[in-house]
Design a binder for these strands. Structure first.
Lengths: 202, 202
DNA sequence: CTTCGTGACGACAGTTACTGACATCGCTAT
DNA sequence: ATAGCGATGTCAGTAACTGTCGTCACGAAG
């Protein structure tokens, strides 16, 4: 679904558009670069840009749909026996793994979004969509409705907090590890004691 | 601050723009009405519309800033002695009181927003801003940080859920009453029993 | 009474995000 | 071959949003 164009045109038009956009946003800022510029640098026309992205903002959120799909896929492929929180933990750790090697890009992206309210709006919308998709997947596993949405909220919050820390920390830890600590912290809240482990028990 | 224009132009330009917008949105839909149309119906120019509203969407969210200000004002004017949840309850009930007599308008507004993703984005952003403002006010009352944000989240969630029910219910109850029930429900969660009251104890 | 801002608006031109309609041309299946 | 399909190009158009300057009532200062 991502590998288009092997014949008449250069391949990976989407990827070229995204890369061109990041370069231009970094060099001259988000609102000083036009869609026409992005398209030209990618060797395409403005019209084609809007065939790949519904609007200018979406070029910064191409990964969100992939992330959502991966999260749901990971959760659906898990046996339905174990605890619900464990299932969510595994699914979230799965998508956290997909971030490996993209920290610098993610930091650039965050800086751009932080400087533009319209992009923050879109970011929140993507988070809400991710949460809804996760809640729906939990419902498919048999969890009733207040719990499904509440647990999805918590799991997505853990992911976002971990993601933010991952970008902030000076030493470069693995995001999956930070996510795991987050879920440990949540579990500790329920048991009334301090976190049971900092790494998986031997 | 809201009562401009008593001389050379008709008064209440903002109000006229808002009313014109609602009428046109109701008659021909949000995206089939242009800012030029709204401005003309209000007896103003397009340029003036954008002096009052940062963009076309904002004309539907003029009340949000007022609501936020009222919520903070109500909370700040409360004595700092009592319980934190009681203070939030009183503040939220105060702004709930401001909705009286605007149910039909609110339902129209909700229908418009529900039909347009861009407006839902803005709606979520306004809710986030309200939550942040409430958390900050709670911090001013001495509540430390994880609690302030978490409690603000809960209080705003109660308000939004109550608001939605208020619009849905066939018989027209008072929003303040529904908000009160919501806070009762939350309090019951903490005490481990069912809600203590459905209406204020006699 | 004059003068001097100041605030709210109009007029106008310009940019740019976004859309619709139609043409082009390699690829694949029949 | 040919017919359809899919990704793109071309072109024209709409409407959201911005910068700049001019206008005119008002109120304060002189």
């Amino acid at each position: 679904m991502y590998d288009n164009d092997v014949g008449r045109w250069q391949p990976d038009a989407r990827g070229r558009l995204e890369q061109a956009a990041y370069e231009l946003f970094r060099d001259q800022g988000y609102d000083r670069t036009t869609v026409a510029e992005i398209s030209a640098r990618a060797g395409l026309t403005e019209r084609t840009f809007f065939r790949h992205y519904a609007d200018k903002r979406e070029v910064l959120f191409g990964g969100a749909a992939f992330l959502e799909a991966e999260l749901v896929r990971a959760l659906d492929s898990l046996p339905k026996g174990g605890s619900a929180m464990d299932a969510m933990r595994i699914a979230v750790e799965t998508i956290a793994g997909h971030m490996r090697g993209r920290r610098d890009l993610a930091r650039e992206r965050r800086a751009i979004i932080a400087a533009h309210p319209e992009l923050q709006e879109r970011d929140h919308a993507k988070r809400a969509a991710l949460t809804r998709a996760l809640a729906e997947a939990m419902r498919r596993r048999g969890m009733p409705e207040p719990e499904a949405s509440l647990n999805a909220d918590v799991a997505v919050a853990v992911f976002y907090v971990a993601f933010s820390r991952w970008l902030d920390e000076a030493q470069q830890r693995d995001l999956v590890e930070i996510v795991r600590e987050g879920f440990d912290h949540i579990a500790a809240l329920g048991s009334g004691s301090r976190p049971r482990r900092k790494t998986p028990s031997p």
